[in-house]
Write a protein that binds this DNA or RNA. Structure first.
Lengths: 232, 232
DNA sequence: AAATATATTGTAAAAAGTACAATAATTACC
DNA sequence: GGTAATTATTGTACTTTTTACAATATATTT
């Protein structure tokens, strides 16, 4: 048994971290949340909000907690995406990082830097600064995944406010998929799917004809077998 | 700096492992490869082929190497699927495990137990014995993933021999998707997709009308934009 | 009242999906 | 050599979905 312990010792000396790719959406398009690092290594860089996992905490719980600690964000939609494990991705030792993506409604959540995060800000996905570690690779992976998922899962509703216009719904699809759709065909498809419903309410404070506001009907979507998404 | 080292120490005492879900396919249907453990913990159990990662090895490389070491399988199609990190999933300490799935052509590869694997065998996915750790959960996750992927990626060709009949191609889809298709419609769809081609060869040593053999045309599939799969 | 801005709606043609059963080619057996 | 057994192969009519395409409606601003 002493022998076993000695053998094990060589394996139990790595660390594991979580890195979150938090997507948000506004009139400008798709955004990613970055923090300004106030801690070693890479102090003074913008980076994905992430941290080392304490060995006594479950993985899922750690992911949520780390995001909350650095940005104040709580109870957001999160999903594990991929683990990155190059030998020298971290200067302090062997650190595997488990990437998550999170989708939030920017209207409802107001990120605030905390703990060793000195600042937190939204960046357009097309205007990301230089990132430390392999965070650029992680971010690109997350973007690809979001793009693939959006066609087959109703994820967009995690990014839109509760009430939204069909124009906004179309714009978010077009932004993420980097592809344009015909207005009439898009509306026909969405409405015939049955997963969104009219609210009777109209858009306010706009300088043109106000649009009808719709909302996502999650239970109907589920009932209709829509774990699947909208387009295709 | 000494302070930093002390802080880091509490994080650098976990281990990371790889667990492989190796799928194969034969006349009986979908199979999974398990090893008979000859090493602690859970000596004497059938389990997914997996092992701890040496801290000085890259993740991808480790996944391949561990599979090869335990089963002799080399150069197989592998893909990372998910990381599992419950606090007490491993009796020897905190071990995160990174699950991979692998798809192999059973005709071409002949697994052979090696290292501390005392045996290796194929099990029908419907007849899996009790598994240690959270291997059952990992296996079910992998099955769900395979089922989802098979509709949109040409993964079946990793499981079929180089030359295959349309009947076999249909059977593998039906086995994985747990759903039946109309023979005529299935053939129409597959053939019109253009990603498989006739070989002119016929099946041999069968006791009935021999079927035409087809093969996957990877370059044409790619050219046609088929990272996507066949059905839907 | 006119200009500006965005919202909303329909139709015809093409493509894809679905339901459905008879005939063909081989081996095995008598 | 003929018949039975087994699996392989193929077409058509109907329905549904997708696609291409532009005029009208409703609000605010000037």
């Amino acid at each position: 048994m002493k022998n076993l312990k000695k053998i094990l010792k060589q394996y139990f000396n790595v660390a594991v971290s979580v890195d979150n790719v938090v997507f948000g959406f506004d009139a400008d398009g798709l955004k990613v949340l970055l923090i300004f690092r106030g801690s070693e290594p890479f102090t003074g860089s913008w980076a994905l909000p992430g941290d080392l996992i304490s060995p006594e905490m479950d993985l899922e719980y750690s992911a949520e907690k780390i995001l909350k600690q650095l940005t104040g964000l709580d109870q957001v939609y999160m999903e594990q995406i991929q683990t990155f494990g190059s030998v020298d991705r971290h200067p302090f030792g062997r650190v595997f990082t488990i990437a998550y993506f999170a989708l939030i409604k920017v209207e409802n959540y107001h990120p605030q830097a905390a703990s060793w995060a000195k600042d937190v800000a939204w960046f357009k996905v097309t205007e990301i600064p230089k990132l430390p570690f392999d965070h650029r690779e992680i971010l690109e992976y997350a973007r690809r995944l979001l793009k693939n998922r959006i066609r087959t899962q109703p994820l967009v509703f995690e990014l839109l406010p509760k009430y939204f216009t069909l124009t906004a719904l179309q714009f978010i699809h077009e932004s993420i998929l980097e592809e344009e759709f015909d207005v009439r065909n898009f509306r026909k498809k969405i409405l015939s799917s049955g997963i969104i419903e009219e609210t009777g309410k109209l858009q306010k404070n706009v300088t043109h004809r106000p649009a009808m506001l719709y909302r996502y009907n999650a239970s109907k979507a589920k009932q209709l077998g829509f774990e699947g998404g909208i387009l295709q």
